[in-house]
Amino acid sequence: MSSHRERVYRTRAIILKRREQGEADRVITLFTPEYGKRVVIAKGVRKPTSRKAGHLEPFTHVNLMLAKGKTWDIITSAQTITSFRRLREDLDRTAYAYYFCELLDAFVQENDPHPELYDLLLTAFRHLETSPNPALTARWYELVLLKHVGFAPQLFHCVQCGEAIRPELNYFSLERGGVLCPSHGEGASGAQPIPLNALKVLRYLQTQPYNHIIRLQLKPSTLRQVEKLTGDYLRFLLERRLKSSKFIHQIRAN
């Protein structure tokens, strides 16, 4: 008896993404409360009689049993906790759910536990299921996620002089992750003007609870400005554009 290490373990998980592997297998990226992001393999799940397949679709919240494997741990059983069915049956919600997963995936490393992000994604899926305004739910999710990963934008004080931001046309600096007052923002490299209404919405998103946020009645143009700002900021932080955001724009254009 040389090893006492458990060969089999249980965990809850959210399915972030998956890709085909070999004849009938899938390599699945999980997000778990205890182990953070983890890449595992599910064998035989592309056969129609697989007992696990339906439980391992993207966005599903599952109870898993896994066995330690050489390259990847192997899923030995899977039982759905919540399938978030309403995310699967509406194209816009599906597109946003993919985006939520990709955004989280982009910010976390494997085997780095973040139980607060796990709870956030579950909460975000629940909100998205019933959201009257998925785009607004997505902005809320972005700002909460940014706060948890330590990149919350500074929206109340100038990142240059520290003075309180006044209600006028200010600037947003991607590099410095926050707002610049007019005297430091005008002409500053990489700083873009931030319309007052967009700034107000961003502050509201950063400080208010979701049930207040989702009641906001915003002009579509204001929501677009906020979306562009958070999108630019995320792209700056991640140094790439998220693939799923392109799809959101495509279905909007139709």
Partner: peptide, 16 residues
């Protein structure tokens, strides 16, 4: 449900 499948193992989306 797939032919040769098992009701007990069906996920809720398939079953509903």
């Amino acid at each position: 449900l797939p032919v040769g499948g098992d009701l007990e193992y069906a996920d809720e989306v398939t079953l509903s």
